[in-house]
Design a protein around this nucleic acid. Structure first.
Lengths: 219, 219
DNA sequence: CTATTATTCAAGCGATTGATTGAATAATAG
DNA sequence: CTATTATTCAATCAATCGCTTGAATAATAG
C-alpha cells in the first residue's frame, strides 16, 4: 500500500461510498435504522431476491455500516451505530439542497401531499408533554417495539382506517414513520384529514429523533 | 420511472453515493472545500491525469456536489455548498467509528504523530481572542486567501522551516490545515516542536470550522 | 488568421459490480 | 438421523466504471 495515510483513509472512505451507491442498500439502511431485521424480513420488505439481499447485507457489513448477530438459524442485522443515521441524514440534506431531481420530487410528491408545514421535533416535545397532541407511530409493530417516541400510539398504516376510534377525539394528531422519505406518515395524515381529524406530520422519523438526542421509549 | 417517490429519491441519493466511491474524487472534494480550483490545478495537486480529472469533476457536478464557473478559458470548480462538507464529515465519522482500518490508521499515523491532544475549536476561539496563541494556517496561499481563521498567520508548510522567525516568540502555536486527514498541520507541529516552540494542532480544518458557524476571515 | 492553452468529448480496454441461479452450511424440528 | 428452514457461497453474465489515448471546442495571445 501507499505510505500516505491520507490516501489510505480516502480509499477506505470510498469503500463506504461504494456501499451507498445502490438504492436497494439505502433502503436496507433506512429499514435497519428502525429495528434489527433478519435477511428474510429485509428481502420481503423490499421485494429483493433472497441471495441478493444476503450479498447486499454482507457488503454493508464489510464496509462497517451494519453488524450482524446470529440467533438460532436467524441472522439479525442492525446499524453499526447512530453515526450511520448521521451519514444518511447528511446525504439526504445534500440531495435535497443540490440535486434538482430530488428537490422536485420532495416538493411535488411529498411536501404538496401534506399542505401544512411539518411539525419540528422540539415543538412536538413541548406540546406532547402538555398533552395537547396525540403522537401516532404508523410503522409496523416490530419497529415500534424497538423504540418509539414517548407516549406514542402505534397503529400501523394498513390498520389505521379500521382503528380510528382508538385515537382520542378533539386532539390534534402528529404522525411519524421511518424518516423524511417514508410515505406512511403522509398517507396517515391524508387519511385522518379525510375523516375530519386534525393531523400533521412530524418533520422526520424516529432515527433522526434519536440522533438528535431526544428521548426514546422502548416496549 | 416507478411511481414510488421514495424509490426515486433513493436512486438519486445512490448517485451521490456512487460519486463518493472513488478516493480520487474524495480528494478533489477535500481540496474544493478549501477554495475553488481550475481543472488543471486539481490535476496537478492530486497527480491525476488531465482528462481523467475533467471526467471526475463532471461526475461530481452531475451529482450536484460541485458547481463550475467559467472565467475566460478556465473553469473554476467549487463545492455546491457547506452541506457537502457536512456529508464528508459524517462519512469520516462513520469511518473512524466503524471501520477498523481507518481507526488503525488514525491512531497509528495521525494521533500518535502528535502526542498532545488536538485543540477543540471553541477552546481555540477564546484563547486566540485573548491573544494567548498564534494561529497558524499552513495551507497554500490561494486557500488561505479564500478564507481562514480570524487573525491567522499563513505560512505554507514548505516554507515553514525558513520562516520561523515570523512567528511571535513565547506564544503557543496552534496549527491547522485542510481537515482531519490532512498531514500538513501534523508536520508543522512536529517541526515547531523540534525547534523548541510549543505547538498543537487544531482538531479539524477550515471547512469544519466554517461549517460549525465560527467566524471566517477573507483576504 | 494562426498558434496556444484550458477543457471537454468520444472510443476502447480491463476491472468491478449487481442480479440470477443452484449448491453448500448451519441450526432446528420431528 | 432425516427433513426443513435460514443464510451464505460460488459461478455466470450483462452493465458500469475508471483510466488512457487522441481528437474536438472554446477562449485568448500574437
Amino acid at each position: 500500500m501507499s505510505t500516505n495515510p491520507k490516501r489510505e483513509i480516502f480509499a477506505s472512505l470510498a469503500r463506504i461510498g461504494t456501499v451507498l451507491s445502490s438504492p436497494t442498500r439505502i433502503e436496507f439502511l433506512e429499514l435497519l435504522a428502525q429495528s434489527e431485521r433478519s435477511v428474510e424480513q429485509l428481502a420481503a420488505l423490499t421485494g429483493t431476491a433472497f441471495a441478493n439481499t444476503s450479498q447486499h447485507l454482507q457488503k454493508l457489513r464489510q464496509a462497517g455500516l451494519i453488524v450482524g448477530r446470529k440467533e438460532g438459524q436467524y441472522v439479525f442485522y442492525r446499524l453499526a451505530g447512530d453515526e450511520v443515521v448521521g451519514l444518511m441524514t447528511a446525504l439526504g440534506r445534500v440531495g435535497e439542497t443540490h440535486v434538482a431531481e430530488i428537490e422536485r420530487i420532495v416538493r411535488l410528491y411529498l411536501a404538496e401531499k401534506d399542505g401544512l408545514e411539518p411539525v419540528p421535533a422540539r415543538e412536538l416535545m413541548s406540546r406532547a408533554r402538555r398533552g395537547l397532541v396525540t403522537v401516532l407511530d404508523v410503522r409496523p409493530p416490530e419497529e415500534f417495539a424497538a423504540g418509539h417516541l414517548p407516549g406514542a400510539v402505534n397503529i400501523p398504516i394498513d390498520e389505521l382506517a379500521k382503528r380510528l376510534r382508538e385515537l382520542p377525539r378533539r386532539k390534534e394528531v402528529v404522525a411519524y414513520c421511518r424518516g423524511p422519505y417514508c410515505l406512511m406518515s403522509y398517507d396517515a395524515v391524508s387519511l385522518l384529514r379525510k375523516k375530519g381529524i386534525k393531523a400533521r406530520r412530524l418533520e422526520a422519523g424516529l432515527p433522526e429523533w434519536r440522533l438528535a438526542g431526544l428521548p426514546v421509549e422502548r416496549a
